[in-house]
Amino acid sequence: MIQFSDLHKAYQGDTVLGPVTGAIEKGGITSIVGPNGAGKSTLLTMMGRLLDPTGGRVTIEGRDVFTTKSREMAQQLSILRQENQFTARLRVRELVAFGRFPHSQGRLTEDDHRHVGEALEFLSLTQLADRYLDQLSGGQRQRAYVAMVLAQDTDYVLLDEPLNNLDMKHSVLMMRQLRRAADELGRTIVLIIHDINFAAAHSDRIMALRDGEIVTTGTIPEIMRDEVLTDVFDTPVSVLEVDGRPVAVYYS
């Protein structure tokens, strides 16, 4: 379980998040939703220890993410940011192999190669493994990043907008693959999603943020209700039932 208490971030006195207190349960997929500037990325990057909080603490299974040794943390928690700019020109396989760094410190063992192969396989990248990242489409590249994070083989996986740059088809495929990672590999996945319907269709829980506060956290039926979504997004939203699934309509 990821727990955070009084977590708070301010830039030059302007609070962008919190103080928030809450928890993300172990297992399954938790989606973080909310309007722009709600503090979603801030919360996620602080949970992933990439950003120092102004106050408060984050623990994973009782261990403080900021004081635990970075290498040990990296074996338990992986995080993928939205933008990834690399100085070097890398092949897909080389990138995914970096995911094994917390375990091997750069000297890949048989076991590491197996993990890399599995991660490539899992995201259907085996055929692209020897291509350079800059020879891939945005969606393929996004998959390669996710493969790296999965190769890290951590219980907790944090993803900042993994559907960025993906078209309809690949968004669905990505969510299915993440669903499989959660179900078959037993990962706890936390992700930020812009499309509330994607979140509703593929995740177990939703955490809704607005103006740097957590408005509500709950299961899909608890969140997918007119009044809750209207409140979170500050826009009239009505939830319809389509094929037995709640679908939010908000274009009017």
């Binding site: 970075s70 290498r71 990296a74 990834n84 690399f86 100085t87 970096f98 410190q105 750069g106 890290q152």
Partner: peptide
């Protein structure tokens, strides 16, 4: 530090995510 240098090529955030101080 040669392997750690390799991970630094991925930028700050990714290298921190991989457990580099």
């Amino acid at each position: 530090r040669r392997h750690r240098l390799d991970t630094l090529l991925l930028g700050r955030d990714t290298s921190v995510g991989l457990g580099v101080d």
